[in-house]
């Protein structure tokens, strides 16, 4: 029964997104990738495979994060603003169900966009004679897990702030949390025990989106796919963090006057 609710809500999000031509933007971005790769190909591809793979991973990471954030951030505020929330909430569904269904929709839209970009990037990479490697499939799967976390993060921010502020915060954390954690690591030994605990808390609370990006391993030479145990741990982390984010969003949304 619950799954039926989530599926219905998610389908509406996806249909809206497709018909609003959001994914056209992705197609345009993908076209730019092809164009850029064509330009590089014109320059000469011999020996650029490593760079092409690295660039592809970076571009995929950037574009998919933007799609995830922009799709997720506006779902809830837009429902409230356009008052489409009323007929939804008038149904026998809880607000938590609504959040989960919306998140699922955002995740599916993001996944579609990501897979479209992957397909276009794959075409671009073939012009560079990049060979297929199993780690590329693992890269895609694990990246999709990371996008779930990012969608949940953005949705949660949007429950507490304006869509613009939520998008800004999400983008900052999407691309900055790794930098912040690296900074904490560098500063850790120079601070007192109390501050070290604060550092630990900050590092644990920040979304570890970097661990879902195997781009570095996929692009460079000779790195093997990660083990099944690591994939399982990543899945658990994704589930836990996403669950926590949804609960935090629900804490605000469940009694919010609409």
């Amino acid at each position: 029964m619950k799954f039926r609710i989530y599926r219905a809500l998610a389908r509406a999000v996806v249909l809206e997104s497709i018909r609003r031509k959001d994914l056209w933007v992705v197609a345009i971005l993908g076209f730019l990738i092809l164009l850029a790769s064509g330009a590089l190909g014109f320059f000469g591809v011999q020996g650029l495979q490593l760079f092409a793979k690295d660039l592809a991973a970076s571009v995929l990471s950037l574009f998919s994060a933007v799609v995830a954030v922009l799709t997720s951030c506006r779902l809830l505020p837009e429902e409230i603003k356009q008052r489409t929330l009323y007929p939804l909430l008038a149904r026998p569904i809880s607000r938590l169900d609504l959040l989960i269904g919306k998140l699922l929709g955002a995740v599916i839209v993001t996944w579609i966009a990501f897979l479209m970009l992957c397909a276009l990037t794959a075409v671009a990479l073939t012009t560079f004679h990049v060979q297929f490697e199993p780690i590329m499939i693992q890269y895609i799967i694990i990246k999709m897990m990371g996008l779930v976390v990012l969608c949940a993060l953005s949705l949660t921010f949007s429950a507490y702030m304006t869509p613009q502020a939520a998008a800004t915060m999400s983008i900052i954390l999407a691309f900055g949390s790794g930098v912040i954690v690296r900074g904490l690591i560098m500063a850790y030994n120079g601070v007192g025990p109390a501050t070290q605990w604060i550092y630990k808390l900050i590092a644990a609370a920040l979304p570890q989106l970097g661990v879902f990006d195997l781009g570095g391993r996929a692009a460079n030479i000779g790195w093997s796919p990660v083990s099944g145990a690591v994939v399982l741990q990543l899945f658990l982390y994704m589930a836990t963090y996403t669950g926590a984010m949804v609960l935090i969003a629900w804490a605000k949304f469940r009694r919010q006057a609409v």
Binding site: Y188, V211, Q233
Partner: peptide, 15 residues
């Protein structure tokens, strides 16, 4: 690395 499990994951997934 003070991050414990998160650090292990980082090392396992990054080059």
């Amino acid at each position: 690395d003070f991050r414990g499990w998160f650090g292990d994951l980082d090392r396992a997934t990054a080059p």
